[in-house]
Amino acid sequence: MALPDFVKIVEVGPRDGLQNEKAAVSTEQKVRLIDMLSETGLKVIESGAFVSPKWVPQMADSAEVMARIGRKPDISYPVLAPNLKGLEGALAAQAEEIAIFGAASESFSKRNINKSIAESLDAFRPVAEKALAEGLRVRGYISCVLGCPYEGRIDPTVVAEVSRELKSMGCYEISLGDTIGTGTPEEARRMIAAVAEYVPIEEIGVHFHDTYGQALANLYACLEMGVAVADASVAGLGGCPYAKGATGNVATEDVLYMLQGCGIGTGVDLTKVMAAGRFISDVIGRPPVSRVHRALMAKDAA
């Protein structure tokens, strides 16, 4: 299959990225990051999570962040809302889109949210139903689609079954996440082929972590399968909790550079994304993880 002409980038840095960073980030800094990203051409910027502050303290101020960002009418600012209490917070914050998340690994699901896969899906159904009734869009995430820190390799048919269930709840898009970044291109292709039996390819997104340096290769393999939605994190925000010192989310800058080189449109300005990446990297006190970002900075300094 030919590569897509256009790929939608789902920017997850302000939520999925920051929640895995140890450095404290103020509400004002989060707002500035999101506002900077809103000027880049991105159309989807994940902006917060209505979850227990005990478990995810970095997201405790999501309501204030949502109240203060300069929302643009052509940009979606989804938030994570995994339960009815979270959905209430999202509705109060005037969110227009929420995300719910499951896993393709029984062990990961039980350790992460203390529920089996089936129990987690049962818990999401009333959330999705109410969100849709309130006029919100619902996106589904699936963790550990190519590997699990406890179970190892994951059967693609399990990923497909969870995807089918999320679609049946009304999720308009399913984001397939290689949470620990152990997947390889052929494994990614097999997984996409299995999911596509139940979910149209245009409703599938991918969410790769770069722990083993495979994220871009895996993304390219999925593009060849017809996938045209890619999650990415500015400056590579979000360390991987299972591999000391390893990068987590694939960097938005690296994804943009690859897509530009392939002649694939995104509508996103790489230079402006880099500016946002420099800002938040200074805030958390480390250089951007993005290799493209570092290379272009070095080139400019030469």
Score class of each variant (00 low, 15 high):
Arg111Gln: 11
Thr27Met: 12
Asp231Met: 06
Thr40Phe: 13
Met225Gly: 11
Glu134Ala: 14
Arg189Ile: 12
Gln19Gly: 12
Gly140Ile: 00
Met36Glu: 12
Ser168Glu: 08
Gln94Tyr: 10
Ser120Leu: 03
Ala217Cys: 11
Val195Ser: 12
Glu224Phe: 03
Glu106Arg: 04
Ala104Ile: 05
Met225Trp: 00
Gly236His: 00
Cys148Asn: 04
Ser26Cys: 06
Val234Cys: 15
Lys110Asp: 09
Leu237Trp: 07
Val145Leu: 09
Ala276Ile: 09
Lys72Tyr: 06
Ser175Ala: 13
Val199Trp: 07
Pro241Arg: 11
Leu256Tyr: 09
Val289Cys: 10
Lys54Cys: 14
Ala194Tyr: 04
Ala23Met: 04
Asn112Gly: 06
Ile69Tyr: 15
Ser290Lys: 07
Thr157Leu: 11
Lys22Gln: 15
Glu187Tyr: 09
Met274Thr: 01
Gly181Tyr: 00
Cys148Pro: 05
Met258Thr: 01
Lys85Gly: 11
Gly226Arg: 01
Gln260Pro: 06
Val227Asp: 05
Gly238Tyr: 15
Asp155Phe: 02
Ala60Tyr: 12
Asp282Met: 04
Ser116Ile: 00
Gly135Ile: 08
Thr211Ser: 15
Ala194Leu: 03
His293Lys: 06
Ile117Tyr: 02
Met1Gln: 12
Pro57Trp: 08
Gly48Pro: 02
Ser163Gln: 08
Asp269Gly: 12
Ser175Cys: 03
Thr266Glu: 02
Tyr150Ile: 01
Ala215Asn: 11
Ser62Trp: 03
Glu173Ile: 01
Glu96Asn: 10
Gly285Ile: 12
Gly265Ala: 08
Glu202Asn: 10
Ser290His: 02
Arg294Ala: 15
Ile204Leu: 08
Ala160Cys: 01
Glu21Thr: 12
Ala243Trp: 00
Arg278Tyr: 14
Leu42Tyr: 07
Ala188Glu: 00
Ile98Ala: 05
Val199Gly: 10
Glu28His: 07
Pro4Trp: 03
Ala246Tyr: 03
Val159Lys: 10
Pro149Glu: 01
Gly238Ile: 14
Val31Tyr: 12
Ala2Tyr: 00
Met36Asn: 06
Val234Lys: 14
Gly86Pro: 11
Tyr77Leu: 05
Gly277Asp: 10
Asn20Leu: 13
Glu202Leu: 06
Thr252Trp: 06
Lys22Val: 12
Lys272Ile: 06
Leu84Asp: 09
Leu18Gly: 13
Asn114Trp: 03
Glu197Met: 09
Leu259Phe: 02
Pro288Lys: 07
Val51Thr: 05
Leu166Arg: 11
Met274Arg: 14
